[in-house]
């Protein structure tokens, strides 16, 4: 298993993750709110409605995504720094803190629930990722067994 050289080392990767998540949110938000604005506008103003919905809403979606992704990356780096190892638990712990800190203004109960559900979500993602990795891994070529001789 080789180290992942496609990602940058930890402190700077936070910037990249902020930007990546933000861009993903903006581009996804363009599609989402473009279609939504189109459908919710009266006939004759559908294109205009679509564009104004994009203008008003896509940056907000991007911001939400960006804050989530950036916070997650920050916590991920922090957890890596503390634990000094890389495994699935990093993401789960980081997800716990991300969910918690984003919901911290909603009260103690909300924070707790959000943190736990976010950790579960990340756990599922990590689990699915591991399963996919196992399925996609190249099959090992086993020894060729001679066929059983025919019985006379």
């Amino acid at each position: 298993m080789s180290a992942d050289h496609t990602r940058d080392p930890c402190p700077v990767v936070i910037l990249s993750d902020f930007g990546g998540a933000f861009s993903m949110g903006v581009i996804g938000g363009c599609f989402w709110h473009g279609i939504k604005g189109f459908r919710n506008s009266p006939y004759g103003e559908r294109t205009y409605g679509s564009f104004s919905a994009i203008r008003a809403r896509a940056p907000v979606v991007g911001g939400n995504f960006g804050v989530w992704g950036g916070l997650f990356s920050t916590f991920d780096c922090a957890v890596k720094g503390v634990r000094k190892r890389e495994d699935a638990w990093n993401a789960i712990i980081a997800g716990f803190f991300t969910g918690g800190s984003l919901a911290i203004r909603g009260g103690w109960k909300h924070t707790r629930n959000s943190a736990i559900s976010c950790a579960c979500f990340l756990g599922i993602i990590e689990g699915v990722g591991m399963m996919l990795q196992r399925v996609m891994a190249q099959p090992t070529i086993g020894p060729a067994f001679p066929e059983e001789p025919m019985k006379a």
């Binding site: 910037l15 990249s16 993750d17 933000f22």
Partner: peptide, 8 residues
């Protein structure tokens, strides 16, 4: 990613 993240 870096440009957007930094500016954001």
């Amino acid at each position: 990613c870096y440009g957007t993240g930094t500016m954001y």
